[in-house]
Design a protein around this nucleic acid. Sequence first.
DNA 1: TATCCTTACGGAATTCGTAAGCATG
DNA 2: CATGCTTACGAATTCCGTAAGGATA
Lengths: 315, 315
Amino acid sequence: MNLQQLRFVHEAARRNLNLTETAKALFTSQPGVSKAILELEEELGIDIFERHGKRLRRITEPGQSVLRAIEIILREVGNLRRIGEEYAKQDTGRLSIATTHSQARYVLPQPVATLRQRFPRVNVVLHQGSPSQVAQMLLDEVADIGLATETVSGFDALVSIPWYEWQHVAVMPKAHPLAGVERLSLDDLAREPLVSYHPSFTGRTAIDRAFATHRLEPQFVLEAIDADVIKTYVRGGLGVGLVAEVAMREENPDGDLAWRPVGHLFGHNVARVAFKRGVMLRSYVFAFAELLGDRLSRPLIERALGGQASTAYEL
Amino acid sequence: MNLQQLRFVHEAARRNLNLTETAKALFTSQPGVSKAILELEEELGIDIFERHGKRLRRITEPGQSVLRAIEIILREVGNLRRIGEEYAKQDTGRLSIATTHSQARYVLPQPVATLRQRFPRVNVVLHQGSPSQVAQMLLDEVADIGLATETVSGFDALVSIPWYEWQHVAVMPKAHPLAGVERLSLDDLAREPLVSYHPSFTGRTAIDRAFATHRLEPQFVLEAIDADVIKTYVRGGLGVGLVAEVAMREENPDGDLAWRPVGHLFGHNVARVAFKRGVMLRSYVFAFAELLGDRLSRPLIERALGGQASTAYEL
DNA sequence: TATCCTTACGGAATTCGTAAGCATG
DNA sequence: CATGCTTACGAATTCCGTAAGGATA
C-alpha cells in the first residue's frame, strides 16, 4: 500500500470513475493509475470498483468504506504539509476564501486589506461561487474558509459558525412611486416587476418562501448572481431590486437610487463562516476570522471544530 | 512523502527516540530509518526531532503536531486492512481482548466459548495485564476491546462503556471467627491480616480509600494480581482475602471457604468495556460485546465511538 | 569505550511511461 | 468506431542493505 494508490482511488471516485480523467488530473499516465488501483484491490483482497467488462461502473460496498478511510488519510497528509509550512514559513502562504459575491464585493475588502497589512507575505485568493459551490470548495479543500448565507450548514464534514445577521432591502430609482413609501408591503412588491438574485443564491429562498406563504406570484423580470448587476438594471428602470443590505451601505445617499429595508417581509438571514472538519488551519486563517468579527475568536472556532463526544457513557 | 517514513517517525516516538530499536521493531536497517526520517523532515521543511550531536533528544513542537497527524494516518491505514478482511474473509480473523485476570478467569470463559461456536474461524487472543496495561494495549491497537474496572476511562483516545457493577467480598476459611459474622465492619477487617490485589489492580483503590477515610491502617500481608492466588493463601491461613465477587460465584458452597459481600464498606465498582476511538471494529467484535451483555449493542457502541459535535454552533 | 546517528555507495525492487490489446456503447 | 480499461515491457527512479565515519555519555 502506498499513498499514490490512495490518491488515485480518491480522485477516480471524484471523477465519475473515469481513470483517463483521473490520470490527467494527477499528471500521470492512465495505465499507471489502472495498475495502481488494481494492485491496491489485490492487496486488500476486495474490489473497490465494480467493473463491467473494462469499464468501472460503480463503487462497491467495501469501496465506500475504503473511500471514507482514504479521505481521512489524504486530509491528514495535507495537514502534514500545512504543519510544515506553518512552522517553516511562518506568516507566509496562501489564504483561500470561498465566498459569494455579496461578501466578496461589500464585506471582505476591509478585512482582506487589514490581513494583507498584518501578513504581507500571505497571498489571498478569492473563489466566488454559489453557496453550494462554496460548500463544495471547502469539501474539496480548495478553500480554507467559506463565507455564505445558505448551504454551508447541512454537511456533516463542515462546521459553520454564525457571522452576522442581515436583511434584504428593496431598491428603486428615486423617482419611483414606491420610493416615498416608508414601510413596503408584500403586495406593493408583488405588483412591481422584480429584479433579484438567482434562486441558488443569497437568501433568495427566503424571498420565495414569503411570497409563496401569502399566495402571491411576483414577476421576476431578471435574476442575477450579483447585486452590482441588479442595481444596474434597477437604474435602467427594469424594475424594483431586492438585494442584501450590505450592497447598499456604501451607496451615495445623494445618488440616483432609493432603498428601504424589507426584513419585516422576508425575515432575517444569517451569514455564516464555515470550515471543513479535520483540516488544519494556518494561524493567519484564525487571524482573518477574527477580522471578520470579534466573536469569531480562535478558541471559539477550535471548539466548534474539535467537537468530540464525551469519553465515557454513563449508565 | 510515503507511508514508510510515517511509520518510522511514529515508531521512533514510541521507542524513546531510539532509531536502532525502531529499526529492529520494524524489521529493517537502522540507516534506512535514519535516512527516511531525515528526508521527511527535509520535505516538510521542519525538524520533527531535536538532535544533540548525533542523538535524538526530544520531539520538537511542530513534531508534536506531525505525530498527531501520523497517528491518524496509520490508524486509518490499519482500518483499510481491516475493511479488506471484513469483506474478503468474512467471519475469519482474530479477536484480541485486553483484560484483567478477574475477567479472563471468571467472566470471559462463557462468552468466549459462545463466540467460538458462532465464529469458528475467529481466533481469540487474551492479553492479560493491569488496567493501565489494558488501556495501553488499546492505544497501541494491540487489542480490539479492553475490559477492566479502572483507568480505561481517562484517555481521550479511548471510549469506555459501563458493563456491570460489582462489589468486593471478604473470603476466609470456614473455621475463621469472622465466618459467622453476617455483616462485617471495617474495624473487623482492619484487625485481620489481609490478602488482596496489588495496588495497580481491580478496585484496590476503593479498598485503600475506605480504610484511609476511617483512619484505619490495615495490614496487607500479601498482595497478588489474581484471585486464585489470593484464595490459595487464604486457604493456607495467611489472612482474610478481599477479592471481586465474581471470583467466588463458582466456588463450591460445600468447600472450605466462606465469604461475605462487603460492598457496604468499599462501595461498588463498575467494570467497563473500552475501545479506541477511530479504529474500525470487525463485525465479530460487536458480536462479542453483545455476548458480554445485552446492553452492549452495536448501535450503542457505535454511538459512543462516533461522537461528533453538532455541525453548527448557534448564536 | 560502548552506544547510536549520519553519510556513502551499490544492488534490488518498485515505479512509471509508452505501446499494444481488447471491451463497451 | 471512439472511448476507455488492462496487459506488456523497458527505462528511470527509488528503496534498502552493508560498510564506514563521527559524536555522545
